[in-house]
């Protein structure tokens, strides 16, 4: 049985292919630890309520809100933050489609889109919209983001 008392404990997190020892309270969210102990600031702190998707990371390939996960429950998962995503087609698609405005929501969107294109290489518009509902862009650049995702999905679907 895994257990942790009220004092801080060292756990191991597997992030972007590397293992890191971090010292956590049970109440520390994954977002807290990624940003404050590992310096991975790509996951943004925003609503902290699971509403905006700015803190999205991948846990075993699935997009989750890192503000709604405890760090301690994540130690048996393979985590990916935006810093670990290199050379993904979705990143170039965001550039090509001008799918970035202020950029605050971009890491969350890109990770979510990357997971979508990986899991559903032939995603329909309905599936794309369902997945994209997890992230908010306050600059409201949704159309460009959708076009970026569609371009990647179309490309992988034709491959």
């Amino acid at each position: 049985m895994i257990s942790n008392g009220k004092s801080k404990t060292v756990i191991e997190l597997h992030v972007n292919g590397d293992s890191h020892e971090v010292m956590v309270r049970s109440g520390d969210t994954l977002l807290d630890i990624l940003r404050e102990q590992l310096g991975l600031s790509g996951a943004k702190r925003s609503c902290e309520n699971g509403d905006c998707g700015a803190c999205t990371v991948l846990a075993d390939g699935k997009p989750i809100h890192s503000c709604l996960s405890l760090a301690i429950e994540s130690c048996d998962q393979s985590l990916m933050t935006i810093e670990g995503l290199m050379g993904s087609p979705i990143q170039q698609a965001f550039v090509d489609n001008w799918a970035i405005q202020c950029g605050f929501c971009t890491p969350g969107f890109i990770l979510n889109c990357h997971a979508l294109a990986t899991e559903h290489p032939n995603a329909s518009d309905e599936v794309i919209e369902e997945w994209m509902c997890s992230n908010l862009c306050r600059c409201t650049g949704y159309q460009e983001i959708k076009e970026a995702v569609q371009s990647v999905v179309r490309a992988s679907g034709n491959a």
Binding site: M1, I2, S3, G5, K6, S26, G27, D28, T29, E73
Partner: peptide
């Protein structure tokens, strides 16, 4: 961040 401390157990 959760503002209070608690113990965490994950039984198998």
């Amino acid at each position: 961040m959760i503002p209070f401390d608690f113990e965490y157990y994950k039984p198998a």
